[in-house]
């Protein structure tokens, strides 16, 4: 097994981070997203938002206080990414982050099925984290060089944070996989549970063709993803699942193949939609 590819986020040094104010400033200077860029930003933002929503549930329920803090931190980072991305997406047609988060329907969301999966036990949450954080790490690493300066700056900031998320998920995968018999069994089950939703993450759409040089082509990330995850699973004494991929019924990220999205939104939007136009 190769440990060399399992980098530790603790090796990352802090860099210059973009702030919400800088994005807002850029937008005031007339840099607004085109409809295609907005749709792309919305896709990334929805993934981050829904995962933050899922992870936020753990705060006060985690196996240790340290994990309440860690999962809370990861959720906060993701929520930060979502806010940047939704703010930018909204600049295309004058909508705010809250318009997009609270006043879109189930059909209008673009989140992937992986982040919509329920928290399950801690192993399910870690399995989802392992796959998503590795995907997000590779995605943001490439997106940091985007021809769109706002997307590039958001990715640059997000990359430093998802590197920690990846480290957290990797460290727990090792501990659960190679811990006790029970944790090994639960972790193997969990990884098999989330595995069918991988294909959707790496499926190219027409949108990516139109945004050549701006968006990252998802299929281009697959080989490195597979190699890294296989290394982590091997180090954790876990098997790479051999399970069928769930078809993109009704279209990639359409929500047509998800029964979870509606419940997530029903909870998240419940208060805001009862008070349309209100300021909080």
């Amino acid at each position: 097994m190769s440990f060399a590819t399992i980098d530790s986020a603790t090796k990352q040094s802090a860099g210059t981070a973009i702030t919400a104010e800088e994005i807002a400033e850029g937008l005031h200077e007339g840099h607004t997203a085109s409809p295609d860029v907005a749709r792309y930003a919305l896709t990334l933002g929805d993934d981050a938002l829904i995962l933050a929503q899922r992870l936020g549930w753990w705060i006060s329920r985690a196996p240790e206080m340290e994990e309440d803090i860690a999962l809370g931190n990861i959720a906060l980072d993701l929520l930060g990414h979502a806010r940047f991305l939704l703010t930018y997406a909204g600049s295309a047609d004058g909508r705010t982050e809250d318009d997009l988060a609270y006043f879109r329907t189930e059909e209008e969301f673009r989140s992937c099925r992986l982040v919509e999966q329920p928290n399950g036990d801690f192993a399910h949450t870690i399995a989802r984290q392992l796959l998503f954080s590795q995907y997000a790490y590779l995605l943001y690493r490439e997106l940091a060089g985007s021809a769109d300066s706002v997307l590039g700056a958001i990715a640059d900031k997000a990359l430093k944070e998802v590197a920690y998320h990846r480290d957290h998920a990797t460290q727990w995968t090792l501990r659960l996989g190679d811990g006790t018999e029970e944790s090994h069994r639960r972790m193997q089950e969990a990884i098999e549970h989330v595995w069918p939703y991988l294909e959707e993450l790496f499926t190219d759409e027409d949108l990516h063709d139109r945004l050549e040089g701006i968006a990252v082509r998802p299929s281009s990330l697959r080989a490195e993803f597979d190699a890294h995850v296989a290394d982590v699973l091997a180090a954790a004494t876990l098997e790479v699942p051999q399970v069928p991929q769930a078809m993109a019924y009704g279209g990639v990220r359409s929500g047509a193949a998800s029964e979870h999205r509606g419940f997530i939104l029903a909870e998240m939007q419940s208060l805001a939609v009862r008070h349309p136009g209100a300021t909080w």
Binding site: G56, A82, E97, D98, A272
Partner: peptide
């Protein structure tokens, strides 16, 4: 946390 009525409030409450 899961029902906070704006993303800003959600972030503050989580923190």
């Amino acid at each position: 946390i899961t029902r906070a009525p704006s993303l800003k409030r959600k972030a503050i409450l989580m923190a």
